[in-house]
């Protein structure tokens, strides 16, 4: 059956030609030559008219098979070549993947605001309102309403920046307590008041004539010192870690009674003693107490019926402790190399 051999021979030749096409162009030419109706393989079909019966059928089948094989070979080669072509094209498009990106970084935040926002968020989660009092205060609110009567040492000119005899830059956020009580007119209160404060201190490593505080005030019937204790423990552990020990020391503020200083176990040494806590194992973190009956009375709350607690946290102090900031002036200097170190807690 030399006819069949011829088909095979021709088919093999064509497949070889297809496989040897070096690029898609050559392949296309080979295709045009061998896959068209007038291709040498198709020309073999002329022989069918010389055949009959089974031979004719066999011949037809052999031709179909050969054509299919050729088509398949063509398609395979086409795939191979186009893949290679894409590969080669892409290989030329290689970039240095370590070059700098287009920056979509969040801007830096002054650690002062980082801490202030964090304190606010903790108390908001505990159901507190947040409200800012004014930086410029009357001495009536800054002192008298805080149970610091005239002639009290804290009212000395040397400690406060006065604008007129009765107007000054507030020396603490505590007057916000009096404002809150005046506004609530006898209703229960749960509020924090963040803000800027000012004292006549020369600026140095640890002192600043401007500084921030967050004041807290809760007033209702039956508020007791234990409520203050629990609230501060919760806050301080959220702020400084669940493992912090919290301790209370007797202290004095004119507007609270009893008054306490609150310490937490040192986050560096966990109470063993180290340079951060000056060897004591504890760090003083805020002042607090039960609202003095006079402060309630002046705001129209009957101290026989109502009681409350209050606390004040220094923002810079917390920021300095948390981030190991060595000089409070850095916070106000605005060097972007400093600011950009801080993005989130």
């Amino acid at each position: 059956m030399e006819l069949f051999d011829k088909i095979t021979e021709l088919k093999n030749e064509i497949i070889k030609e297809i496989k040897e096409a070096k690029n898609l162009n050559e392949l296309k030419l080979a295709g045009e030559k061998n896959l068209s109706k007038k291709s040498p393989l198709n020309a073999m079909m002329a022989h069918i008219k010389d055949l009959v019966g089974e031979a004719k059928a066999n011949f037809g089948q052999a031709m179909n098979k050969a054509r299919n094989e050729v088509t398949e070979a063509y398609q395979n080669r086409q795939l191979e070549l186009s893949e290679a072509e894409i590969k080669e094209k892409l290989s030329k498009e290689k970039i240095d993947i370590t070059l700098p990106s287009v920056s979509y970084k969040m801007g830096g935040i002054n650690p002062f605001y980082l801490i202030q926002d964090e304190i606010i968020d903790i108390f908001v989660s505990m159901g507190y309102e947040v409200k800012e009092g004014p930086d410029v205060e009357t001495d009536y609110f800054n002192f008298e309403r805080m149970n610091i009567p005239e002639n009290h040492p804290a009212r000395e000119m040397q400690d406060s920046f006065y604008i007129t005899n009765s107007l000054l830059l507030r020396t603490h956020t505590s007057p916000a307590q009096a404002h809150a009580m005046d506004e609530k007119k006898g209703e229960p209160i749960k509020i924090i008041c963040p803000g800027k404060c000012f004292r006549r201190d020369d600026d140095d490593v640890t002192h600043s004539h401007q500084f921030g505080q967050v004041e807290g005030l809760v007033v209702d019937k039956n508020i007791n010192f234990g409520n203050l204790k629990a609230t501060l423990e919760l806050f301080l552990r959220k702020m400084f870690g669940e493992k912090r020990e919290v301790r209370f020391r007797g202290s004095y503020f004119p507007f609270t009674e009893p008054s306490v200083e609150v310490d937490i176990s040192c986050m560096e040494c966990h109470g063993k003693g180290c340079p951060t806590c000056k060897g004591t194992g504890y760090i003083e973190i805020l002042g607090a107490g039960m609202v003095h009956p006079n402060v309630l009375k002046m705001a129209g709350y009957d101290p026989k019926e109502y009681s409350g607690f209050a606390f004040g946290v220094g923002i810079e102090r917390v920021a300095m402790l948390r981030y190991g900031i060595d000089d409070i002036r850095r916070i106000y200097q605005g060097d972007v190399r400093f600011i950009e170190q801080f993005t989130r807690k």
Binding site: V124, G127, V130, K190, V218, F225, A230, R247, P258
Partner: peptide
């Protein structure tokens, strides 16, 4: 204050205030 500074703050029960539930919010 005299009583607690003498007897010690550790005797104070730590207990969150039981107030009406309020919605915390920024002004």
């Amino acid at each position: 204050e005299e009583v607690i500074r003498i007897l010690g703050f550790e005797h104070v029960r730590s207990e969150l205030p039981s107030m009406t539930l309020s919605v915390g919010k920024l002004e």
